[in-house]
Design a binder for these strands. Structure first.
Lengths: 336, 336
DNA sequence: TTGTACGCGTTATCAG
DNA sequence: CTGATAACGCGTACAA
């Protein structure tokens, strides 16, 4: 009988039903050696009879070491770029027997901090973070801190394990590609300039133009478009510039901006060339040239770094970079 | 001083540093009344000094009721349909102060069972499940069971709270739409026929044809396409049928099938009409007519049901249905 | 206002 | 092979 009616059965309940001691039940559950077969069978029967299931929280409290969970703080699970990362991290976690706690910070530094704190209180074994901004020293501080790996963007005010994408090089490659096709008035439509990825991609864009001795194009830089709708507006505006200021090519600096640009361009007869940063589903069907990286590799690498730390790998923070390659599909190969 | 070097500081450590008792620290941390201001300040200073963070696992073990987590078992986070669900569930969870544990079952019943078991061992407060198949009585069994809500598909062998989409009605609407545009040879390309959603959508398809007294079209039913690639092959085959057997319209029964169909159709001069079940990003740009439901509403409704049970709502299992509407964008309005 | 004793469900220690 | 007992970090009941 349960100590209290309707409560989840405990090992004590199992022990009582099986007529053995607590420790014997523990042995059977954890598959430890040293239990006579008939005894083990009696315990197993009791477990099945009362529907016992071990309380992992209590177990991990007892031995202190692992809670069996991995924490992932991303920007937004609904964004395909991040959902692929989440998928890769989940696979890695599962391979190691960890469950994944996921939360979206939504570009809010305060919220990010809160989520990290909540995960630490829940004693995650390690943290994977797509940092928003602000000061990240809080992650490195405090006794008994947990391995933390930053994805997609570096932490601020502190050095730590991280996996980034070839942002500047990728953007520069896109610009060079457009230059090769005769474009000189190349516009760029990007997310908020405070974001690391935006800054790097803009830097790559500028470096590409500079290397080709193309003059200042700051009038064609449209940053600050957080949503597809904002990007759509920005592109529409670019298209209504007077002919000799109007860009003949556009670089969209992330997937949401690309989506907005495609909406702005839909149905137009004469379209500018377009290269998007980040690949997306159906880019092949739409014939959109993109700079493609591998979000799944990003997530998997970050997990690998974190697991390495869990396995005792010591040493200075590691910096990994995932390559970005240009995939020509038509939209980026239109003549100027 | 810490009891052990390098260990996470505990409330006992805080108490020692602040020169108060354990209970006083507990009061301060939980914001309970009845602590003199100067005492509270001393405790707060000690907490900051040693970097203490409460162990939520221990706390929830103590008071037994809530672990503060919600479990979500879906098919695949990387699929946009499910990542939107995950996003909605996460928002709902956060609003209630719960963290979300997510895991993908990948159409594997055994894995689903394992994941659910792992979540129960971790004492999630409630479970949201996109069931794969097999017997789901295990969810309803056992003492101290947890509220479980099924999403997108019903559980088998057992009745339980669930939120489904208007599958049959939606598919039927698509067929009627195509019939209105003069089509009679309407093919359907779908996922595995074992899946509930597939079965229902196929039933809706057949019902639509039957109501219009259109003869048997079983030769145009292509089920079993789990991936976009498989769907692409299936559509390509349909397009190479002899002219008088070849479909003039195609219904793709989920988002992956639609993607495959679009790839098969890309670059063809004469395309059949196409209606896809499930909306997707850029469907507007591609001009694809779809049957659209609201995955976010699906997730939010399921969370609401689960929270209702947590709040003590009793009574028989509740069955909710999210509507599906046809959105005409061109591909479904081509003449036969 | 503050402190003591105990218990949550499990694992670890050490005896029998 | 098996079992009594302590301990993990915290909250609750009750006393001081």
């Amino acid at each position: 009988m349960s100590s209290r009616a309707n409560a989840r059965p405990t090992m004590r309940d199992v022990a009582q039903v099986a007529g053995v001691s607590l420790k014997t039940v523990s042995r059977v559950i954890n598959g430890e050696a040293g239990v006579a077969d008939p005894t083990a069978a009696r315990v197993a029967r009791a477990i099945a009879a009362i529907g016992f299931q071990r309380n992992d929280l209590a177990a991990s409290l007892r031995h202190g070491r692992s809670s069996g969970t991995l924490g992932l703080v991303i920007e937004d699970v609904a964004n395909p770029f991040y959902s692929v990362i989440a998928q890769a991290v989940e696979s890695a976690a599962r391979a190691r027997g960890l469950m994944l706690i996921t939360a979206s910070a939504r570009e809010d530094p305060h919220r990010e901090h809160e989520l990290v704190a909540a995960m630490l209180r829940r004693r995650v074994d390690a943290l994977l973070i797509v940092p928003v901004g602000g000061d990240h020293r809080y992650v490195a501080q405090g006794a008994g801190r947990v391995p933390a790996v930053f994805l997609d963007r570096p932490p601020e005010q502190v050095d730590a394990d991280r996996v980034l994408i070839e942002n500047a090089a990728g953007a520069r490659r896109a610009v060079e590609h457009l230059l090769e096709h005769g474009h000189e008035r190349i516009a760029v439509v990007s997310d908020a300039p405070e974001l690391y990825t935006t800054r790097e991609r803009l830097a790559g864009y500028r470096a590409g133009l500079r290397a080709a001795s193309v003059g200042d194009r700051s009038a064609l830089v449209r940053a600050g478009n957080r949503t597809a709708v904002q990007a759509q507006v920005a592109v529409t505006e670019l298209l209504t510039l007077p002919p000799r200021e109007r860009p003949t090519a556009i670089l969209t600096a992330n997937n949401r901006n690309t989506v907005g640009a495609l909406r702005a361009l839909a149905g137009r007869r004469r379209r500018p060339s377009l290269v998007g940063f980040d690949d997306f589903e159906l880019a092949d069907v739409l014939g959109v040239t993109v700079v493609r990286s591998d979000p799944a590799l990003l997530g998997a690498s970050a997990a690998r770094l974190a697991f390495g730390r869990l396995d005792g790998e010591d040493g200075p923070p590691r910096h990994l970079e995932v390559p970005a390659e240009l995939v020509a599909r038509g939209s980026g190969e239109l003549a100027a």
